[in-house]
Amino acid sequence: MNVQGLEFPDALRYAPEHSLWLREEVDGSVTLGLTAYGCALYGQIFAFTPKRVGARIERERSFGVVEFAKAASSARSPLAGELLAVNEALLERPALINQDCYGDGWMVRLRPEDWSAMREEFPLGKAAEAAIAERMRLDNFDPANAHVQALRWK
């Protein structure tokens, strides 16, 4: 699916208010990553400092810090759970988030608490389109703005 020139793969779930995608893994864990919209908002990412593996992550609390331009932001988790894995490649090459946010640029993997009860809070693919578009509207997102460093797929 494409929203304002940004790609959002149909096979993923989304947390639009966090600018994150979620992918269910076969082992019951959930992988999180920044969406193309999140990358457009942050611009070039210079560092990602995740919490340590094994840490308990509370819902709406940080799972790491993203540094960009002249600022930093806490990456808040839409889920509570145990941090199972961090993308070690991002420690050396944080630009992978900008280059391949839906692939090699994934950020963390969690073992969520009560995923079966929460999973429907995160719309899958096309069902997320209206929520993503509304988030962009609320943020006054303008993809034509020269300062937006959006990832665009042809």
Rank of each mutant, 00 (worst) to 15 (best):
A69D: 14
L110G: 07
C101D: 00
W115R: 01
P94T: 04
A133L: 07
L22C: 03
G54T: 09
R109A: 02
L91M: 09
G81F: 03
E60S: 12
R52Q: 14
K70A: 07
L12V: 11
E67Q: 10
D10K: 01
E121D: 15
A146W: 08
M107W: 02
P94A: 01
Y42R: 12
L12E: 06
S62G: 12
P78C: 07
P9G: 00
K51Q: 12
E58A: 15
I57W: 03
L6H: 08
Q99K: 09
E134W: 10
L96P: 05
D27V: 14
S74N: 15
V65E: 09
A95Q: 13
L138V: 02
G28W: 05
A71R: 12
E67F: 07
R76S: 12
R13K: 13
W115N: 04
E25M: 14
A36I: 02
G43R: 00
L151G: 00
F46E: 08
R135I: 09
A128C: 07
A117H: 09
L32V: 03
K154R: 15
D27I: 14
F141W: 06
S19A: 15
R56L: 13
V108H: 00
L138F: 07
L124E: 11
D100S: 10
R59Q: 14
G81D: 05
E120V: 15
K154W: 09
F122Y: 05
E17V: 06
E7Q: 11
S29N: 07
S74V: 12
D139Y: 01
N140C: 13
Y37F: 14
F48E: 03
E134T: 14
L110A: 01
Y42S: 13
E24F: 04
L138N: 03
T31K: 09
I97F: 05
L138M: 09
E113N: 06
A69F: 15
R137A: 12
A131N: 02
R59W: 08
E24P: 00
L96N: 06
E129Q: 07
R135L: 13
R93N: 12
E120Y: 10
H147P: 04
D114P: 13
P143F: 04
M107A: 08
S77A: 10
P143L: 02
E82R: 14
R109V: 13
A131W: 00
A144R: 04
L138T: 03
R111P: 13
A146V: 08
L20N: 04
L79F: 05
A75C: 12
L90I: 08
L151R: 10
D142T: 08
Y37P: 00
I45W: 00
A47Y: 14
E92H: 11
A75L: 14
A146E: 14
G81S: 05
L151V: 12
G33E: 00
V108E: 02
M118I: 13
S19M: 13
S77N: 03
